[in-house]
Design a protein around this nucleic acid. Structure first.
Lengths: 356, 356
DNA sequence: CTAGGTCCTGTGAACGTTCATATCATCCGC
DNA sequence: GCGGATGATATGAACGTTCACAGGACCTAG
């Protein structure tokens, strides 16, 4: 069994000692119990090959038995490494949370964990800028590296981090002429592939329903659609919505263009329920008369009737790439020189239709 | 401007010093620059009232100018406090991520942040038990407190943490006779309220579509439905689904019971798309002929056509309560003696119908 | 002018670990 | 049997901070 967390010592046990935070088993305790020195215990954990097998076994057994774990703070203070990656969670509107965050974090925790790192969620305090929060993390030596996501073109944090030389990486590309420490999904290519998929299913007239927000990834998807339509020789209309209320009306409008499109390409899964409703209102059956495709593979896309054909982001591969880049920066001091684009995976589900 | 992250010193700058992790501005540096002692600088940050105004101002200005932040590790080592809450993220199936996690984390980060704490995501390493991972956190003094969620009745972690005396709290209730350091949503009451809402809209025959998984919160919702139906004198059928494939069929079956229900109560939002499809298949219009209600207020419920009436979990209040309980444990050493149930908020959306 | 208080500031120590290096034991070949 | 090499273990120092307490400046009142 393991040593319980030591309670604060009472007055009776040690009258002279003032109330203080309890301390646990220290390396000295283990060393004494094993009849060896501190350093030997330290080596048993950090450089086992330096110990004779019998000593190693004895010390290791005692470490286990006493439940000794090196104090993280002391280890960090001495060695200068924290094994922590700070992630500045984008401030999301509670009414409209970043749907990707959950899956992305999941992947990051797993990827970082396998490398022996943990994720610390950092949020700027009210009234504090993101750059300032990062400055705190760096100056207080809270983490070994910083992870950013949802970065816009003009985000000053990227340049700030680059200037400081602190190891960092970004989920989402940054423009040319700026630091290229990013990993991103090749949204344009994924959209081209999706158009190709529609083409291979016999579609010739496809419509694009997009979101008008000025977010880079949305523009990449739009560009991908255009390129795909041209490359595969498809006729394509486009329309954009600004908010939730417009979706059905704009989608219906798209479906009424002539010649009527046989497929509706959405730039994000969130448009799918509205698109389905529009199809129904027009007397079309998704998956039979009309193909609908989304983007992101949100969990609910499989709940829809019919389930949505969409693009799955390779979150685990993204996380692995980010972690590997971060560790490269930390350990070798050399940030990667180019960004990394990863392909998205089209997921074929019943909302696809095949034309003769 | 702020001091950049110091690069490792080169050989030229300091020939005798071996390659080592760079260090930043220390308290000593600030003290020297200000012509005061370390302690005075420390006090400027930790106990400003102990300084004369002019000294305080001078030192504070210098701290700002030099970009000094106390080294987190050193501070923790000395003071024994880390200002970190460890959260053991439940291992979620990447295909079926815990939909609540995103919103809950968001709320926790905000609530903890306001109290000056950060959230560290901890995951058991492959092959390592959750209890073991927590033991690591405690023994290595990585965090001041631990937060659990998605705890099942027999989860040994709760008892383990209770035994150690380490500060912890749980999102989700634990059974009687076990530690009561939890905060939870009063699912049963929320469901009763939802039935009451239906009753007040004129409904007399309501059907319950539940998930058969043996999760405590689902059973609470089911119980709430039964109590509500009895209390408001409604006739209620119940049916349960095991997986995604069954939803439409089981829902249609429910709608075909006689007398036909006028409302469909779901135990989770994820059933809504299937329920909508079933209604359509039966020739019913949700929001006109049939009311449908969900639970959890997932982001996509507002996308559905019509938007879903559901129960919003008070995530922010839950997070606040959890943080306040954690801090109470940390600071006063006394864990709360009873759990805390918080009410869910019914959210009225167009999937509700009013009967004459 | 001084005693006595009240603040404010400075000094040494300690937190628990790892680094750098010294010391010691062991073993091999001669 | 001994010098030297090799490798294991031990020792002192340092990481940067805060705690406990000592010391000093300043002020007021007698």
């Amino acid at each position: 069994m393991t040593e319980p967390w030591p309670r604060p010592r009472t007055e009776e046990e040690n009258p002279s000692m003032p109330a203080q935070r309890p301390r646990g088993v220290s390396i000295q305790d283990v060393a004494r119990a094993a009849g060896v020195s501190r350093q030997t215990v330290s080596n048993a954990l950090n450089a086992p090959h330096k110990l004779r097998p019998d000593t190693l076994e004895r010390v290791t057994a005692l470490i286990e038995e006493m439940g000794y774990r090196p104090d993280q703070s002391a280890r960090s203070l001495r060695s200068g490494t924290r094994r922590i990656i700070a992630y500045t969670t984008p401030e999301t509107d509670p009414d409209n949370p970043n749907a990707l965050m959950s899956g992305f974090l999941e992947a990051m925790v797993a990827a970082a964990g396998e490398a022996g790192y943990r994720i610390l969620l950092v949020r700027p305090r009210p009234g504090q800028s993101k750059a300032r929060a990062l400055e705190d993390v760096i100056a207080a030596r809270t983490a070994d590296a910083i992870l950013l996501s949802d970065v816009l073109e003009d985000d000053p944090c990227v340049d700030y981090l680059h200037e400081t030389g602190f190891p960092f990486a970004v989920f989402g590309r940054t423009g040319p002429g700026r630091p290229q420490a990013w990993v991103d999904v090749d949204s344009a290519q994924a959209m081209i592939d999706m158009v190709g998929l529609l083409s291979s299913h016999g579609h010739r007239r496809v419509a694009y329903l997009g979101t008008s927000a000025a977010l880079p990834w949305l523009r990449h998807r739009e560009a991908g659609f255009r390129i795909g339509a041209r490359r595969f020789g498809l006729a394509g209309h486009e329309a954009f919505v600004d908010g939730l209320d417009e979706v059905v009306a704009v989608a219906r409008d798209l479906l009424n263009r002539s010649p009527r499109p046989t497929a509706l390409v959405l730039d994000d899964d969130w448009l799918a329920p509205g698109a389905y409703a529009a199809a129904q209102a027009e007397g079309l059956t998704v998956g039979a008369d009309l193909a609908v495709t989304g983007f992101n593979d949100m969990p609910y896309t499989r709940l829809l009737q019919p389930a949505l054909t969409t693009v799955r982001l390779p979150l685990r591969r993204i996380a692995d790439a980010l972690v590997s880049r971060l560790l490269q920066s930390v350990e070798e001091g050399a940030p990667p020189e180019a960004g990394l684009l990863l392909a998205g995976d089209p997921v074929l589900r019943p909302s696809m239709t095949t034309l003769a």
